[in-house]
């Protein structure tokens, strides 16, 4: 490779050194192939599926469209950071119990997108949920059980028995 990059990234609060990288590497590639964090998935390489959703400085973005070397001095959060205490989040639990997981390839990205939505909006309407998740393609479920999972989390967080 013509250029070799050395930089550090802060992922889930931990600083990681990246050495000998190619400048064109996406954050998705670096997370998966260099930092051993394969939770974000690659399925389209162009921001059209949401499987690679991570947070950069609190914004939910497609890591395939972030040039990794440009993300220094940013707080990066991935699905692996959700379970630092070893327990599943309420969103993750609901995905399992409501049947929102089939092949599971879209799941980490969707889990991140749902967390992001519910962090910003505690009681989203049905349409707000759909619009917020419209960047995350799921090919297996037809979304019905995913909506059910989101509804379950909203109900539970708002103290309603589902």
């Amino acid at each position: 490779m013509s250029s070799a990059e050395f930089y550090s990234l802060t992922v889930n609060g931990v600083e990681h050194q990246v050495a000998d990288a190619w400048i064109g590497e996406s954050l998705l590639y670096v997370l998966r192939e260099r930092l051993g964090l394969p939770g974000a998935k690659g399925a389209c390489e162009q921001g059209e599926c949401g499987s690679c959703t991570v947070f950069v400085n609190g914004e939910s973005v497609c890591s395939c469209l972030v040039m990794a070397a440009s993300a220094v001095n940013c707080e990066i959060a991935t699905v692996e950071g959700l379970n630092s205490d070893g327990t599943l989040t309420d969103v993750q639990e609901a995905f399992i119990t409501e049947g929102a997981v089939q092949c599971g390839f879209c799941t980490p990205g969707l889990v991140m997108a749902v967390h992001h939505l519910l962090d910003q909006n505690h009681s989203p309407s049905e349409l707000e949920v759909k619009e917020a998740l419209s960047g995350n393609i799921c090919r297996c479920t037809g979304y019905g059980r995913i909506f059910a999972a989101v509804d379950a989390v909203i109900a539970s967080r708002n103290g309603v028995e589902s």
Binding site: R32, P38, G39, K41, G42, Q92, G99, V101, G104, T107
Partner: peptide, 20 residues
């Protein structure tokens, strides 16, 4: 309606797809 045995791994992002 038994739940998927691989569900927890899949929601955590540590289920090993072949690409992983």
């Amino acid at each position: 309606s038994a739940l998927r045995p691989d569900g927890a791994a899949k929601v955590r992002g540590d289920f090993s797809f072949t690409s992983d």
